[in-house]
Amino acid sequence: MTEVLKEALLAPDRRATVIKDIEQLIDAEVAEKNGVGGMAVKSGYAVVKKMNSTFVSEAVDSMLDRFVDSVEPFYAQHQASGEGSFADHLVANSSDVADALLGVTDDRAENSRRESVKKAYARLRPQAKKHVEDALPRLGDLIERHMSAVQSG
């Protein structure tokens, strides 16, 4: 299988922009959360960003290769089908896509040497799949934007 996303999104001249765009996607998703659960997500996210303003971008950078690997098969399916937008394809396969993406963060948390990270992740993980599924339209749009830029450039 051709690794189209890997070649485009992880290219040295594009990687920093992809990371910045993903951080903005995360910021936007967190900002839209509401209710008691949303308040918890917002406050936790604010604490993390206040403690270390580069934490999110560093975390995205460290996991980006694996995130791209996990999305690549869905992109190949979408390309083969030739139907709709990639965002629509991700939403139509939201459970599988979320599981694939969360597999990356599950591994990262499991292999952390810091118990505080493991405990915090364990508290947030039960709601994570819904949050990831909610973010898939933006993620699909982000990927399509980058793929269009690569193809036209």
Rank of each mutant, 00 (worst) to 15 (best):
116 S>Q: 11
111 N>V: 02
35 G>S: 11
96 D>R: 07
51 M>D: 05
102 L>D: 01
148 S>E: 14
84 G>T: 03
90 L>N: 03
48 V>A: 15
85 S>D: 07
92 A>R: 12
62 S>N: 11
2 T>V: 02
135 A>N: 05
20 K>A: 15
51 M>C: 07
139 L>I: 08
12 P>N: 05
14 R>M: 06
2 T>R: 00
39 M>N: 14
59 A>K: 03
95 S>F: 05
55 F>P: 02
74 F>H: 12
39 M>W: 13
133 E>L: 05
90 L>P: 03
101 L>G: 08
48 V>G: 04
105 T>F: 01
51 M>N: 12
67 F>H: 09
98 A>N: 01
120 A>I: 07
26 I>D: 04
45 Y>N: 06
60 V>K: 01
151 Q>C: 09
3 E>Q: 07
10 L>Y: 07
113 R>Y: 09
24 Q>S: 14
58 E>H: 06
28 A>F: 06
145 R>V: 11
103 G>N: 05
59 A>L: 00
130 K>V: 11
64 L>Y: 03
64 L>M: 03
61 D>K: 12
27 D>K: 00
133 E>P: 01
116 S>T: 15
21 D>E: 15
30 V>Q: 05
19 I>F: 11
70 S>P: 07
109 A>D: 00
27 D>A: 02
114 R>L: 15
131 H>I: 10
97 V>A: 05
88 D>N: 07
30 V>M: 06
149 A>K: 15
29 E>Y: 00
138 R>E: 09
44 G>Q: 10
60 V>W: 00
107 D>R: 03
11 A>V: 02
48 V>P: 01
100 A>S: 13
113 R>A: 14
74 F>P: 06
26 I>P: 02
98 A>F: 03
